[in-house]
Amino acid sequence: MNTTTLFINALAVICLILGLRKDREKTKHALKIAVMSFIKILPTMLAIILIIGLMSGFVPPKTISKIVGQEAGFKGILIVGALGAVLHIPSLIAFPLAASLLEKGASVTSVAVFITTLTMIGFVTLPLEIRILGKKFAVLRNVLSFIMALIIGILVGVIL
């Protein structure tokens, strides 16, 4: 366990103790809400573990590195950008998946593009966006977002 994790957990315990001392009922209520929230996100957390486990088991690091690593170049960045634009993955799953991709040999640039396109482009929600905002605006927003995601990813890769 690293120091950041220890610090955050210690801070949470201290705040819990202070909360119990100040108002026991409110703290109990807050803990009930926290437990219910945990139960609600449990399926998503299990999905994270499943996706990362399957990827780790079936996709060798060499393949990941070849497709979205440094050697893939701009083609790899475009592939991962297209995947990020098309997939509809909640960030709760995307960040651990991105970390796993990095560990398996993906480049920082590719992972940055993947996360950025996941959050900025709504291919799945495009029909709704077209209906509400109009076709021209929705398509233009998504195209410009894709270009910006590529630029952001490349900048992150250069900086890191």
Rank of each mutant, 00 (worst) to 15 (best):
residue 4 T to M: 04
residue 6 L to R: 11
residue 6 L to Y: 14
residue 12 A to Q: 14
residue 12 A to N: 02
residue 14 I to V: 14
residue 15 C to F: 14
residue 15 C to K: 10
residue 16 L to H: 14
residue 19 G to H: 11
residue 19 G to I: 13
residue 21 R to Y: 09
residue 21 R to Q: 12
residue 23 D to W: 12
residue 25 E to N: 08
residue 29 H to N: 08
residue 31 L to K: 13
residue 31 L to P: 02
residue 31 L to R: 04
residue 34 A to C: 09
residue 36 M to C: 09
residue 40 K to H: 13
residue 41 I to A: 09
residue 42 L to S: 10
residue 42 L to V: 15
residue 42 L to M: 07
residue 48 I to Y: 02
residue 49 I to F: 03
residue 51 I to Q: 12
residue 52 I to W: 01
residue 52 I to R: 08
residue 53 G to L: 15
residue 56 S to T: 13
residue 56 S to G: 15
residue 61 P to R: 07
residue 62 K to F: 09
residue 64 I to G: 12
residue 68 V to C: 07
residue 69 G to V: 11
residue 71 E to Q: 14
residue 71 E to V: 12
residue 72 A to E: 09
residue 73 G to T: 03
residue 74 F to L: 14
residue 74 F to C: 06
residue 75 K to N: 06
residue 76 G to L: 08
residue 77 I to L: 15
residue 77 I to G: 07
residue 78 L to K: 01
residue 78 L to N: 04
residue 79 I to V: 08
residue 80 V to Y: 02
residue 83 L to N: 06
residue 84 G to F: 00
residue 84 G to D: 10
residue 84 G to T: 10
residue 86 V to A: 12
residue 86 V to C: 14
residue 88 H to D: 15
residue 89 I to K: 05
residue 91 S to A: 10
residue 91 S to Y: 03
residue 91 S to L: 09
residue 97 L to Y: 00
residue 99 A to E: 10
residue 99 A to I: 08
residue 100 S to G: 01
residue 103 E to V: 06
residue 104 K to D: 05
residue 104 K to P: 00
residue 106 A to C: 07
residue 107 S to P: 00
residue 111 V to W: 02
residue 111 V to T: 13
residue 114 F to K: 02
residue 115 I to Y: 00
residue 116 T to M: 12
residue 118 L to F: 10
residue 118 L to S: 13
residue 119 T to G: 10
residue 120 M to S: 15
residue 121 I to Q: 03
residue 123 F to T: 14
residue 123 F to R: 15
residue 125 T to N: 15
residue 126 L to C: 13
residue 128 L to T: 08
residue 134 G to T: 11
residue 134 G to N: 05
residue 135 K to Q: 07
residue 136 K to R: 08
residue 138 A to D: 06
residue 142 N to W: 03
residue 142 N to F: 06
residue 142 N to T: 09
residue 145 S to V: 08
residue 146 F to A: 09
residue 147 I to A: 14
residue 148 M to S: 11
residue 150 L to D: 02
residue 152 I to T: 13
residue 156 V to C: 12
residue 156 V to T: 09
residue 157 G to L: 03
residue 157 G to Y: 00
